[in-house]
Amino acid sequence: MKAIEVNGLSKSYGPIIAVSGLDLHVDEGEIFGLLGPNGCGKTTAIKMLLGLVRPDSGSAKVLGRKAGSKGSLENVGYMPQETALYEELTVKENLKLFAGINGLSGNEYRKREDEVLDLVNLGERRDSILSTLSGGQRHRVSLAVSMVHAPRLLFLDEPTVGVDPPLRANFWRTFRKMRDRGLTIIMTTHYMDEAVNCDLIAMMREGRIIAQGSPSEVMSRSKAGNLEDAFLKLSREEVKV
């Protein structure tokens, strides 16, 4: 089954076109990167898949269910750009809350708490109030929260923004580990250099996809040495057309 099937998805805010005719097909067990500069429509696209924003036209299916329909978020995890957690609660309380919302029983939760905290290396800080943690640690808690209910599909919106290089490397190790366990990851990023870690990428510009494929395919197609050059070349070609 496809993890994501998107056909002609569009969204405008007044005269501003956020996403235009988006087509995406992602198989399960892949790391899929949605690349592009700030404001190119990546977050809007993800929010439409999560049912948080109503599309103007087009259709989207998430794990076989219509995006935004009842039950479409079962087995789905989401890590937003900002920490988006309760700063006054402990790490454990934040995890417990979102585990409960996703229907985990007490026993299941206790097992998952250890697993996800080990994964983000924060086992010793489980009883700390979130606001006492550093920015990077909060980011890791946010990742742990998005995975606490063992989703099959994980949406990560700019997961590495404001994250220092060692932590970023740590994140990518975690993502690959989870992918190897069968999890599908859809992530947005504007860091072109790290997108080479994705299995598949789609480059977005002004709400539209300008290239799609594996990172090496996109680079060879555009005859560029890295993804940043590839993006710049493809953007220029777009403008010429």
């Binding site: 999560l50 948080l52 978020l73 789905v76 989401y78 920490t83 957690l85 979102f98 919302i101």
Partner: peptide, 13 residues
């Protein structure tokens, strides 16, 4: 403003 409302919705609440 903290984004927790969006996160709650994204978790199916």
């Amino acid at each position: 403003t903290r984004g927790t409302l969006t996160r709650l919705f994204a978790n199916g609440l």
